[in-house]
């Protein structure tokens, strides 16, 4: 009896999902192994925003990428969307495309519901890619994908 329970316990231990499994819900992190998620989680900082609270304002330096863990964020992009607000929901992210595009925020972002965001500084992000080349390739692949989606969407909205 006790042997069976030990085996069950071991099974449960080995089959249990990673504590950081929820991070795989973000498109850019979905190919990561448990260890890669653990390493990436070291540079994540959890931030809580109340409804209506600003996350960043226009002309701020582009320093931080945000992953939306809970809640909804409204981004007013005066450069790309000519002031039309974009809604960023759970498991989406903001700031990555701009990182390769601009040096300063071209709009502002605020939480429209109580939100929990995971913040990564751009410097940490760059160091992570540089210091973990194989994981960095996975990450950058996903970022490129996001960038191409964004360009495609931009192009379509311009031709319409």
């Amino acid at each position: 009896m006790s042997q069976i329970s030990i085996i069950k316990l071991l099974k449960a231990l080995f089959n249990k999902k990673s504590r950081l499994d929820y991070l795989r819900n973000f498109n850019i992190l979905k190919d990561f192994t448990d260890y890669e998620l653990y390493m990436f989680s070291q540079i994540l900082n959890e931030r809580k925003y109340k409804a209506g609270e600003f996350i960043y304002k226009e002309q701020y330096p582009l320093a931080v990428i945000y992953l939306v863990l809970e809640g909804t964020v409204e981004v007013q992009d005066n450069y790309h969307n000519s002031g039309k607000p974009t809604i960023i929901k759970k498991n989406q992210f903001l700031g990555i495309v701009d990182m390769y595009n601009q040096h300063r925020r071209q709009g502002e972002a605020k939480a429209i519901k109580n939100s929990v965001l995971l913040a990564v500084s751009y410097i940490d992000f760059q160091h992570f890619v540089k210091n973990h080349p194989s994981t960095g390739v996975k990450l950058m692949n996903r970022v490129c994908e996001a960038l191409s989606h964004f360009i495609y969407k931009q192009h379509n909205s311009e031709t319409e």
Partner: peptide, 21 residues
């Protein structure tokens, strides 16, 4: 580092993280 950043108000979070780096 994370615990220290938790103490920083949202308004100053970005500047503090840049300065720390």
């Amino acid at each position: 580092r994370k615990d220290f950043l938790k103490l920083v108000p949202n308004r100053y979070f970005e500047i503090v993280i840049i300065l720390m780096h």
